[in-house]
Write a protein that binds this DNA or RNA. Structure first.
Lengths: 321, 321
DNA sequence: TTGTAGGCGTTATCAG
DNA sequence: CTGATAACGCCTACAA
C-alpha cells in the first residue's frame, strides 16, 4: 500500500504538499499539483482512513439509536439518515436498543468516549436527566420536541397534529373517539396523550381509558385492537392509529369480523406509508425520510448551535373515514 | 483526555505494560496489573479507537450491501448482522444500493481501500466477474449459493425449496401454478426459475410466462398481481409468493375482488414474517435473522477459509392452501 | 516479566 | 507558495 510519503518521493515534493493537493488546499503551484496528481494515478494510491481519523481526532461515525431496525417507521428514518451520511462521507453505527436503558447507555457511552462524533436518538426509554448528562461530550440530536432544552431536534408537533386529526373526526360526526399508540411513555406519546385529553375536555367528552390502545407497533397488533373493540359494550366509532401498519392490520381484521370500515369504525392512520395508499387508509403524512436527513445534518453541524426544526405534516383523505 | 502514556506514568509502569493489561495479554505481575487498573479507574480513561485502528491496520467496520434498508427481508437480515456485530465490537456500514451497480461499486471500492474489513453482500445487481475482481482485497460474503466459487456464503437452497413447495401444491390438486418474485435476475431468482421450469417439465405442464409475476417486493405489489389474475382468461389456481408481504397484499386485494382464497387462488408465502401469521398465510419459514448472524461471522472469520452454510427451511401450514 | 523505541499514515504548525 | 517536523495514541518486535 503506497502512502503519502511514497507519493511525495515520486512527485519530488514534500508530504505537506501532497497533503495539500489531497485536501484541495490553496497555495500549490499548478505544476507541483500536476506532479502529485500523476503520482496518485500511477500508484493508485488510497488514503488510509484510519490515519486520517486519528490525525483529525474524529471518527466520521454517527450513532443512530433506534429501538428496532425492522420497524417501518425507524427504517424510513434510517433511510434518510443513511442517505445524508453517504453524501457527507460519514458512516453509521446502529444501536438497536429494544428500549433497554442499558443498550441506550452503551450508545451514550460511545459518544462520551469519542467513538462516534454525534448521536442521533430516534426514540428513547432513558430519562431526560440521563441524556442531559452526556450533552457535554458531543452533539446529541433528538427526534422529538426539545424546545426549551439545550439540544437540537427535528420533530413533528404531535400535539397540534393530534388535535387537528381529532377535530377532523368530530367534524365528521364522531363523538366516541379513541387512539392507538406504540407505547404510552416517550415524549411524542405524552404530547399525543395531552392533546387527546385536552380535546376531550374541550368537547365535554368523557375520558375512557379503554379507548386508548397501547403497544400498537406492527400490522399484527391490529388484531388485538379489533378483538378488543368487538368485545366492547360501547366501542369507539373512530380511532387515531399512530402507525399505518397497525391501521392496515385493523382494516384487515375488521373485515374478518364483519366490522365495516368506516361505517362501524373510522380510522386515521399516521406516516402515509405505502400500505396506507394501497389499503385506502386516510392518514397523516409524515416525511420520515426527510426528517432523517435533517437529523443527520444537525448532528454534524459545524457551528454547534442548537436548532429546532419543526416539520409540517398533512392529512391525506382516503377511504377510512 | 488521558492516554496510555499518562496511565503508565500514574501506575509507575511502561506503556507496554499498560497495553498488555488493556488487551489481557499474559506476563504481567498481578501487582502491576492492579496498579494499571487503578489508574484506569481514577482517570476514567477511554482508549482512542482511531489510534487502535491505525495501529492494527483494521477498521472494525463491516460493510453491508442491501438494495433497500426498509424492506422487511433485508431489515431482518440486517437485524441479525447488527446483533452479531455488536457482540464482536464491530460496527456496520450500510450500503443502500437500490441495485445500482454504481453504488455497489462504491462498497467494493471501500473494501479495496481497506475502509471496511469485510463486505457482506445481501443481494446484488453486479455481475459475478466484477465481484470476483475484488476478492483479493478482503473477505466478501454472499447470501446466495456460491458453492463452486471461492467465496463464503450462507444461503438457502432455493432450488430445492421451490421444488418442495411446488410438489406440495400439486399434491393438493393444483395443476396451474405460478409464482411471484422480487426481480427475475439475481442468483436466488435464477435457481427458483430453474426449479419452476424443471418442475413443469417433470409434470408435463406447459410454461406460461404470464404465470410469473415480476417485481413483487412490497405489500402494495399484491394489488397488481390480483388485478392481473382477475383479468386472465385462464388464471393460475395457485401461486408461490416469494415474500409474505406480497402474499398479504394479495390476500387483501383478493378479498376486495371477491376472489376466494384458497378456493379460487391458493398461496404459499416465503419467510414467515409476522404478517403471515396474523393473516393465516401458509409459508416457508426462512430464519433470516440467523442467516444475518452467520453472514457476519463468516465475514470476520480469522482463518480465511471459505465456507458454505446451507440453512434449512420448513413449511408452515396455515390457511391459504 | 518488563521496558525501549520505532512504526502506523495523516494533518497541522511554523518557519522560511 | 513550500517543506521539516511534531503531534495523534496505540501496538509490538526486540532487547534485557
Amino acid at each position: 500500500m503506497t502512502n503519502i510519503r511514497d507519493l511525495a518521493k515520486m512527485a519530488g515534493v514534500s508530504v505537506t504538499t501532497v497533503s495539500r493537493v489531497l485536501n484541495n488546499h490553496p497555495y500549490v503551484k499548478e505544476e507541483k499539483r500536476k506532479a502529485v496528481l500523476d503520482a496518485i494515478k500511477q500508484s493508485n494510491y488510497q488514503p488510509n482512513i484510519n490515519a486520517v481519523h486519528l490525525s483529525m481526532g474524529k471518527t466520521f461515525l454517527v450513532g443512530v439509536m433506534v429501538p428496532s431496525i425492522d420497524h417501518p417507521y425507524f427504517a424510513s428514518l434510517i433511510k434518510g439518515i443513511s442517505h445524508e451520511a453517504l453524501t457527507h462521507n460519514y458512516n453509521l453505527v446502529l444501536f438497536q436498543t429494544n428500549y433497554k436503558e442499558e443498550r441506550e447507555l452503551d450508545a451514550l457511552q460511545m459518544l462520551k468516549q469519542k467513538q462516534i462524533d454525534a448521536l442521533i436518538i430516534c426514540s428513547r426509554a432513558s430519562s431526560w436527566p440521563l441524556i442531559e448528562e452526556f450533552l457535554p461530550y458531543g452533539p446529541i440530536v433528538l427526534c422529538e420536541d426539545t424546545r426549551g432544552k439545550k439540544v437540537s431536534s427535528t420533530f413533528v408537533d404531535h400535539y397540534q397534529t393530534f388535535i387537528y386529526a381529532l377535530e377532523y373526526l368530530i367534524q365528521n360526526g364522531h363523538r366516541k373517539v379513541g387512539y392507538s399508540i406504540g407505547r404510552k411513555t416517550g415524549t411524542n406519546s405524552k404530547f399525543r396523550e395531552m392533546a387527546y385529553k385536552d380535546f376531550l375536555k374541550k368537547n365535554h367528552l368523557p375520558f375512557d381509558p379503554a379507548y386508548v390502545f397501547d403497544n400498537c407497533l406492527y400490522f399484527e397488533d391490529g388484531e388485538r385492537v379489533v378483538d378488543t373493540i368487538a368485545s366492547m359494550d360501547d366501542p369507539p366509532s373512530a380511532l387515531l392509529v399512530t402507525n399505518d401498519d397497525v391501521a392496515a392490520g385493523i382494516v384487515t381484521c375488521a373485515r374478518n369480523r364483519q366490522i365495516s370500515i368506516p361505517n362501524d369504525l373510522a380510522l386515521i392512520g399516521f406516516n402515509n406509508q405505502p400500505i396506507a395508499k394501497i389499503m385506502d387508509i386516510t392518514t397523516i403524512e409524515i416525511p420520515l425520510v426527510e426528517i432523517g436527513r435533517k437529523l443527520f445534518l444537525q448532528g454534524i453541524a459545524e457551528n454547534q448551535e442548537i436548532s429546532y426544526q419543526e416539520i409540517p405534516v398533512r392529512l391525506i383523505k382516503r377511504g377510512t373515514i
